[in-house]
Design a protein around this nucleic acid. Structure first.
Length: 198
DNA sequence: CGTGCGATCGTG
DNA sequence: ACGATCGCACGA
């Protein structure tokens, strides 16, 4: 296991987004380790992207982490119910981040199932397994990521990202680009192909 | 201080 | 297709 180096995040946000697909998000909880293979992300860039919360360098209390140097987590509450996990990228003062939209839970399934459904893994239906962490809010529930991770470096003890861990190594068969989800208001930016899966 | 969202999700 | 639900940005 080798946590991603700091430089990994100091790149164009779309480049970081592509590189993150196939990497492993690791959540070390008190009960054990949860590993998720990142399979869906979206890039947001405050300099030119009307879908970004920091569009036009609009700086508020909530989006402050976006203005920090890359390598931090940014977690915010959406629709009063769910958390979304972002990976801050680029240099300080250049607001940009990658939203982690989905992951396949490879280790710690028992924990993840409990976090999200309050059931053990064996009790889950096929449908529940399939949708365990296939959305930004679901991922945060399954991996127990909440507001307390806002501003936290992504090479920490309880949350980090790596290319390889244990028997798992990054491998991406076919990286695809798509339009982003839930940003119909963002005018021309809604057509940016800044969502990546693989 | 009051008002209206929103990078979502589950159900119908 | 729709409602839940609430922190926060913004205007008065």
């Amino acid at each position: 296991m080798k946590k991603l180096e700091k430089d990994f995040y100091l790149d164009e946000v779309t480049a970081v987004a592509r590189k993150l697909v196939g990497c492993f998000l690791v959540r070390q909880t008190e009960g054990g380790r949860i590993i998720g293979r990142i399979n869906e992300v979206e890039a947001y860039d405050g300099r030119l992207d009307k879908a970004c919360h920091a569009y036009g360098h609009k700086r508020t209390k909530r989006n402050e982490p976006l203005f920090q140097k890359g390598g931090l987590a940014h977690v915010y509450l959406i629709y009063g119910r769910y958390y979304c996990l972002n990976v801050v990228t680029g240099n300080a003062g250049e607001p940009a981040a990658v939203l982690i939209r989905g992951a396949e839970i490879l280790e710690g399934r028992e924990l993840a199932a409990g976090n999200r459904y309050r059931q053990s893994w064996a009790e889950l239906t096929d449908r529940q397994m399939k949708h365990l962490a296939d959305g930004p809010g679901k991922l945060c529930l399954a991996m127990a990521v909440d507001k307390s991770f806002d501003f936290e470096p992504l090479d920490g003890r309880r949350l980090y990202v790596c290319r390889e861990i244990g028997r798992f190594t990054r491998s991406v068969a076919g990286l695809k680009a798509h339009r982003r989800i839930g940003i119909e208001y963002a005018e021309e930016a809604r057509d940016f192909l800044w969502r990546f899966t693989g």
